[in-house]
Simulated assay, not measured.
Amino acid sequence: MKAKLLLLAFTISCYQVFTQDLIAVQNGGDPIFYEDLSEAIKKSVTGDTLFVPAKNYVVNDTIRKELHIIGEGYDLTNNLGATILSSKNNTTPMLVLEEGASNGSITGIRFSVNKSGVYSRNIFSVTELNNYLIDRCFLSLHLYASNSLVKNCILSNTTIQAKITSVLSNNILVGNGYALSKCSIRNNIFLVMSDRYNSLNPNECNIDNNIFPPNYRIWYPVNCSLRNNLNISLNGVSGDNFGSSNFDSDLVLNETFINYTQLNGIDNNSANFQLIANSSFKNAGTDGTDLGIYGGRFPWKDGSAPFNPQIIFSEIPGTTDENGVLKIRIEVEAQKN
């Protein structure tokens, strides 16, 4: 009996070592494991979920089916590491989303920085998608999608075009160039001062509860509603725009948040984007919650770990105790949606 248990312990231990660095593809049954992410994407079928462990992957793949890709997070300071996707040539998207990819999702991925240009953004959708989710990622994005949601991400150079309203909510925007059409833009933080065409360029958008640097100039909004935002001005207008209850402040960003001085504070986790204790922007949103990423419907999750449980500690002894019991200790960690 003990020999069998020892064999079981050895098997469990080997299985864990063997699978912890492999990509698991699952759709209700037993998982299938792959070493190569491109192969996993190619061989998966509609509705599959791909669990992608923390390490570096080089990909330039096209997705034409509903897939749910879940990494272990983008935080480089995480004890588990980060799931990082890079491009083979640094000029083309890591993932191109085409017809058939609707209803899919990408969560917990860090995309490496590509060269500038709309066609080199990390994720690029060619045809209109519907009901797509991008959550807790670090990326640049060109998304043509309706009824979709981008939340709790760190974003640069992003374009979202929608026929039916999509939502950009509770994100940190760290670069220039945001062309957004028919979007609800809520509870985001814009960290880089921009002017003219490098700033936010919205068309038929609802813009609520966001925080901008002082004197941030939104570039030619067209038929937009702007409510309860901090520090905005308009660089030209077109069509009918509506604004109410917006706030002007002389406070720079490092006087608005508990701790923020420069962009690298995002990556080393020294930044804290909670509003200072006596801030007049607490509970000042259209829904009675704070301005910025900790208010609204999708409050920021510190650490930005994916929602699925992650193994943070495991202890599997090589022998049983005096009663023939093999005591296995496994600790997991997850954040709520």
Results as ranks from 00 to 15, higher is better:
Ile218Lys: 06
Asp321Tyr: 04
Thr19Phe: 08
Gly236Leu: 03
Gln274Gly: 09
Val113Asn: 15
Asn114Thr: 00
Ile172Cys: 05
Asp75Gly: 09
Asp135Tyr: 11
Asn89Val: 06
Ile316Phe: 03
Cys14Thr: 15
Ile109Leu: 09
Thr289Asn: 09
Thr83Lys: 00
Leu6Thr: 09
Cys224Asn: 08
Asn246Ala: 04
Asp48Cys: 03
Cys153Met: 01
Gly28His: 08
Val150His: 01
Ser38Asn: 15
Lys4Ile: 10
Phe18Lys: 14
Asn241Phe: 01
Ala54Val: 06
Asp290Ala: 02
Leu143Val: 00
Trp300Val: 05
Ser238Phe: 10
Thr165Ala: 12
Val118Arg: 12
Cys224Gly: 08
Pro214Asp: 03
Asn283Asp: 14
Leu37Phe: 03
Gly239Pro: 06
Asn60Cys: 06
Ile12Ala: 08
Ser44His: 08
Val45Ala: 05
Asp135Phe: 04
Asn259Ser: 11
Asn241Tyr: 00
Tyr220Trp: 10
Gly29Gln: 11
Gly29Arg: 09
Lys151Trp: 00
Ile84Cys: 05
His142Gly: 12
Thr165Asn: 11
Leu80Asp: 10
Leu80Val: 14
Gly47Gln: 01
Leu67Ala: 02
Tyr15Phe: 09
Tyr15Pro: 08
Tyr294Val: 10
Leu253Met: 11
Lys115Thr: 11
Asn283Glu: 15
Phe257Asn: 02
Ile84Lys: 09
Val113Glu: 14
Ser270Arg: 03
Leu191Lys: 03
Ala284Phe: 04
Arg64Tyr: 09
Ala9Met: 10
Ser270Pro: 14
Leu226Gly: 03
Asn187Cys: 04
Asn176Leu: 11
Ser105Thr: 04
Ser140Pro: 02
Leu139Asp: 08
Ala179Phe: 13
Ile32Thr: 13
Leu37Pro: 02
Ser184His: 14
Ile84Ala: 00
Lys301Asp: 14
Tyr220Ile: 11
Asn264Leu: 11
Ser166Lys: 02
